[in-house]
Write a protein that binds this DNA or RNA. Sequence first.
DNA 1: CTGACACGTTACGCTTGACGTAACATCAAA
DNA 2: TTTGATGTTACGTCAAGCGTAACGTGTCAG
Lengths: 255, 255
Amino acid sequence: MHDVAKEKTSDIIQSVDVAIDVLLHVAKHPDIRLSDISRNIEETKPRILRMLRTLEQRGLVRKSKTGTYRLGNTAIVLGTAASTQVDLVRIANPILEELGQKTNETAQLRIIDNGESLCIAKFEPMRDLRVQAMIGRRRPLFAGSYKVLLAFLQPQVRMQMIPATLPRFTNNTITNHAKLLQELENVRKNGVCVSYGEVSEQLVSVSVPVLAFDGSVIAAINVAAPAFRTQQSDVNRYTLLLKDAAAKISARLGW
Amino acid sequence: MHDVAKEKTSDIIQSVDVAIDVLLHVAKHPDIRLSDISRNIEETKPRILRMLRTLEQRGLVRKSKTGTYRLGNTAIVLGTAASTQVDLVRIANPILEELGQKTNETAQLRIIDNGESLCIAKFEPMRDLRVQAMIGRRRPLFAGSYKVLLAFLQPQVRMQMIPATLPRFTNNTITNHAKLLQELENVRKNGVCVSYGEVSEQLVSVSVPVLAFDGSVIAAINVAAPAFRTQQSDVNRYTLLLKDAAAKISARLGW
DNA sequence: CTGACACGTTACGCTTGACGTAACATCAAA
DNA sequence: TTTGATGTTACGTCAAGCGTAACGTGTCAG
């Protein structure tokens, strides 16, 4: 066996691991059916069926009359408990709300997870047109203002997170490695990253890092707004508010 | 083997089942340590360790530097997804909020789960003194206004849910079987259940059922308030508002 | 200082739990 | 009817996951 791309599964209990795969798959694809899960996860149908039955009996998933699966009540209970247990989220939420109220734009809290940025808290203002945020949504680390997360990583770790070729999303996407590294340098110097439509043409996004006492990056908070109503002065204001909010979060995390 | 109290584990994959035990246990007891989980679940430490490692690698739990475990980021993502996938919760939430705003008291959505009532959605008003509700909290079915859930069950199912001896919580708790059955009869007739301090001395709680098209009970919604500021007129008003809200939920569920 | 007793962790040989194959029933479309 | 999906059951096989035992470590009490 070459086990080229095979993960080293040291001490992981595989049936549980696959069950988590199934659970997260149902989370991502509501009303999915057994066969589709089996195909996507690449496991046999009887195995997936056993998994689903186990999850269902515990209320983590629910089977509809038509045979499709969704998350169940236990998942709600679990998630609610989690929101109060994860310090970062619990602390950030009110600060994020204040930030969103002041800017009247969408604010997010994002962490690095599995080589991507993951939204784990958000605030959306009450106005007709706003940027939509979604808890659980993943975005690349190397494009848009979330690359602030990249900028504050240790150099050797950072390099591993940057793919060989940088995919293009818009005209403004940075696809040149040297340029990206230069930009990361600037971001680190200024403590803020502003994206003018690097991922979506019409959006401006401003992110700052949430740092630990030792300068390591914990998360990023950001404000995203439609480009047409965002002047340079707004960006400056958001930056100040973001830095203030980030400092508050850091402080309240105990540093 | 007598397998007297042994559950029939037909087709359930045990290691996954235990992993769920562990996960829910962490949810219920934040900052718990390996040994305690092992003791409570009654499984060996190596087993639990393997479970925790698997859960941790997927971000469902997180291990602190001191060796205690909490829920992790993935649990948040999961729960958020679940809130949007479970029809009942998604539909009930805005209606519950409206109900809570109108009454200016705490409102809850509760279902039957495992012989208890389980809170799966809530609204708490912005005022200094209010009844606290918590998603995931369980309460008995046979005491307080949640017995509305019991009242609308099919008779044979209902009997199985009522324990041989009814524990007393307060002076007002119904501990007599005949009396309880009589009360359930009234509740079914009136479509509402009012508890004057049956579980907590100082609380008044009003619940109505959310019924399916066929008359089967799906859930209960309730309003709970401190007794000292709740007159009979308030109870009457809550009842009307609750019945209205329950009808809306039923309708929006597609019946 | 030194037992004594927690804690988490590792190693490993044994067993049974969980696996995949194959066959099944059912339905829908061709 | 045939074809090709679906979900499901049954069963014999095998290795995944188990518990035992022993380890290292830290913290109390004596």
